[in-house]
Amino acid sequence: MQLKTGARLKSSVCDGEIMVVKAPAGPVELTCGGAPMVETAPAERGTIHPDHAVGIRIGKRYITEDGELEVLCVKAGDGGIAANGQLLLQKDTRQLPKTD
């Protein structure tokens, strides 16, 4: 699917939710726990693929290796986020001095 910056997507296999911080130019297959991420959570959840059960933590950011896609975890979950089958990496954030 074509991702839009600012969009909120839900896992269809766990509690996880993300917001797209940076969207790549072209379409991408975004999954959580191995299943497609959706705008509205399904009534019945699927199961997490064991290879994609790494979990996401609230407030952490996840990126593709090329940095073209970045998401923010807004709700923790047990599934891992992947783009076109590749698990995203947790982004290191630099601690900045408090400014306000």
Partner: peptide, 12 residues
């Protein structure tokens, strides 16, 4: 939101 995400760590 860009300002906050760019300058503040969640639950820091």
């Amino acid at each position: 939101v860009s300002y906050i995400l760019g300058s503040v760590e969640f639950a820091g």
